[in-house]
Computed example of a mutant assay.
Amino acid sequence: MAWARIETADNQILTGVIADGKLHPRVALGSDETAGEPVSMEGSTMLPPCVPGKFIGLWNNFHAAAKRNGLDIPAHPLFFLKPLSSLAGPNAGVTLPPDIGRVIFEGELGVVIGRTCSNVSVSDAETAILGYTCVNDITALDILTADPSFPQWTRAKGFDGFGVIGPVIQTDIDWRDLTVKVMVNGRERQSYPASDMIMNPAQIVSALSADMTLEPGDVIACGTSIGARPIKAGMEVVVVIDGIGALPVTIAATDAG
């Protein structure tokens, strides 16, 4: 089942399930209760498939990247928060602020929470996951390390448009079978198996739920692996996960005028 959120040609914003080329509206994300007649996807704009109350990103959660970078295996998820204003969806234009320095893409698998959970076990965490989406966790590397006294995770990852998710939330997939790819101007630049995670989605949700209450629509980006690279204005960057879909954005520079 693929959950999506769209803006129709007459400016309605709807959440629902995609089937037979139509969006079947629901009263809320994950609900079985209908909210009107099916709507054709033709002429509609795909939006981020949910609006998370919390957008959480993980760091150092893949064995291959940890080994290459000489990092210890963490005992608990190492995470940061991205502001809601960073949220962007499929086909968005992401504008790089002036003098931002090096910026990289990070293709990732995203976990979307389906029910409220606090301090849950790993087995209960599994049932709290609604589904999975694609994430591009765009990061301003030079800003992250600009002040040696304080790594600026939130600022570096929190610019408008730096939290791209979509195109849908897929409920009927096994994360172990997925490969995260990133295409830049049509060329594959990142590809790695989700199965290489240090902490799997249920373990992540369980651990984070001990730190904060997770709520429906919250998004957890599971971290990236080897292959994240710089991006510049004029590039099209597409995160692709077979079984979920393609998540393209176009990178632009701030107009000097």
Rank of each mutant, 00 (worst) to 15 (best):
A2M: 02
W3L: 09
Q12D: 06
V17F: 08
K22E: 15
P25S: 11
V27S: 15
L29D: 10
T45H: 01
P48Q: 07
P49D: 08
C50S: 15
N61R: 01
F62P: 00
A65S: 03
A66T: 01
P83A: 04
S86M: 10
G93L: 04
P98Y: 01
G101T: 00
G101A: 02
R102P: 00
L109E: 10
V111A: 09
I113H: 12
G114C: 12
T116G: 06
S123H: 11
D124K: 15
E126D: 12
L130R: 13
T133F: 09
D137Q: 07
T139E: 08
T139Y: 05
D142L: 00
L144F: 07
T145A: 03
D147W: 00
S149R: 12
S149G: 04
Q152K: 15
F159W: 15
I165Y: 10
V168Q: 01
M183T: 01
M197G: 01
I204V: 14
L208I: 14
L214M: 10
E215N: 13
P216L: 11
P216W: 12
G217Q: 11
G217V: 14
G227F: 09
A228M: 08
R229Y: 03
R229P: 00
I231C: 05
V237E: 05
V239G: 10
G245W: 04
T250S: 14
A252C: 11
